[in-house]
Amino acid sequence: MGNKDIIKITLNLVAICALAGVILSVTWTITNPVKLEKEAEELQAALKGLIPQADAINKAATFVSAGGKEGTIYKAVKGGKPIGYVVSAYTKGYSSFIKMLVAVDTDYRIIGIQILSEQETPGLGDNVDKKWFKDQFRGKTEDHLVVIKGETNTDIQAISGATISSRAVTNGVKAAVEALRAERAKDKAL
């Protein structure tokens, strides 16, 4: 293969790369703002869904959540006063990292939780996203975040056949509350 060949081949590839690059950057310039805007809207909708009475819910701090992933604390404000927090955190489930939002009031009482993403076993673990399971957390304090197999009025009832996933979510909620406590202890203004 002569030198001329090598130059020709290189130019050939460079031309294709350049063309692809131009096309991709144009597409990105058009689509990315739309994507970011929609992502922000979705997050706000999810946060508002948990604390509807808040005037505004904004990012206030970050911490290290399960698996070294970044967790975020959002502060909910009404009439200039904080009325609660939403913690976005991860927890290690049976077959996936479960990403969730945990809303708590200023006394660390759970307002509600939402599962953002999970890949638990279909039909079993993925029941953590069922309303009855998530509703159990409402009004609970940390010491009642315990999974019980079978009926319970005070604690968290496990999903039958999916104790590991139930426990993962419950422990994740607890960890989220603890993370919030720790961050507030560090930063009094939070």
Partner: peptide
């Protein structure tokens, strides 16, 4: 290139 375009368009719209 085409896959990236599909990916970006889908993620936005």
């Amino acid at each position: 290139t085409y896959v990236s375009i599909t990916d970006m368009v889908m993620s936005a719209y």
